[in-house]
Each structure stands twice: as structure tokens, then as C-alpha cells.
Design a protein around this nucleic acid. Structure first.
Length: 117
DNA sequence: GTTGTGACGACTT
DNA sequence: AAAGTCGCCACAA
């Protein structure tokens, strides 16, 4: 029977693992990178069920608006934000501060570079 | 089987 | 800018 799409989950986990430190990617972008366009929600699901042993940089995945997709102020929200700020990602108005839209010729580039000083 | 929900997103009002 | 609609689809009830 359906092995719960283990294959797809693994592709997603692999894509997430590649997000460089100090950078973030969107759910939709990761989906694309994993060869699963329009499956952004699956990415969220994949992260939710990801084994802790994988040590994925799950906190580097934010929504298309550059915001954290947990309820603001919630426990997971604070944890994610803390982890991001700890690696240099700055926030502006609850959004990842993107002070650089240059090399984004293809799509929104999937990866934004937060301003470092 | 149906319905509602959700770590989403693109489009349209 | 904000809210609504629609697409997507795994899961729980």
C-alpha cells in the first residue's frame, strides 16, 4: 500500500537541508526545488513530520511573504524567529528583512539574503 | 465516502 | 493594503 509518500518527503527534506545558513526559503520555493510545484502545503507537512534526527534547518523556511507561518507570539513562532535572528536574519514588521533583490532573475529566487552588517 | 483544517500560494476584488 | 476565492492535497474525525 501507499508508503505514505516517503519518497516525496525525502526529496523535500533534502531541499530544506540545502538552505544556507543566514538565508531563508519559501515553502513554495522548496516545493519547486524538490520538483513538486504547487505543493507548498506538502512542504509544511513534511517539516511537521520530519524526524528530529535529520537536524533540518526547518526554521529557514518561511512563507511567500517572508513571514513565519506560525501564529505570532506562539511558542513555535518565537523559537523560529529566535533561531533565525541568531544566525543573522533580521526582521522588519514581522517579515524577513530583504534588503536585496538583485540576483533574483528567475523567480523570486527561493532564497533571500537577509541584510548582514 | 465527506468535511474541515492547515508550518501555502497565486489571483482577483 | 486587505480580504476573498481557488488550487493543492495529507490527515483526522
Amino acid at each position: 500500500m501507499a508508503g505514505t509518500d516517503r519518497k516525496l518527503l525525502e526529496r523535500i527534506w533534502k531541499a530544506v537541508a540545502k538552505i544556507p545558513r543566514g538565508q531563508v526559503a519559501s515553502y513554495g520555493g522548496i516545493a519547486r526545488r524538490a520538483g513538486l510545484p504547487r505543493r507548498a502545503r506538502l512542504v509544511g507537512h513534511a517539516l511537521k513530520v520530519a524526524p528530529d534526527g535529520l537536524r533540518l534547518p526547518w526554521h529557514r523556511v518561511v512563507n511567500a511573504r517572508g513571514a513565519i507561518s506560525f501564529p505570532p507570539g506562539s511558542r513555535p513562532y518565537r523559537l523560529q524567529r529566535e533561531k533565525l535572528e541568531q544566525e543573522g536574519v533580521r526582521f522588519r514588521n514581522g517579515r524577513v528583512d530583504v534588503a536585496n533583490h538583485e540576483m533574483t532573475d528567475d523567480l523570486d529566487a527561493l532564497l533571500w539574503r537577509p541584510r548582514r552588517d
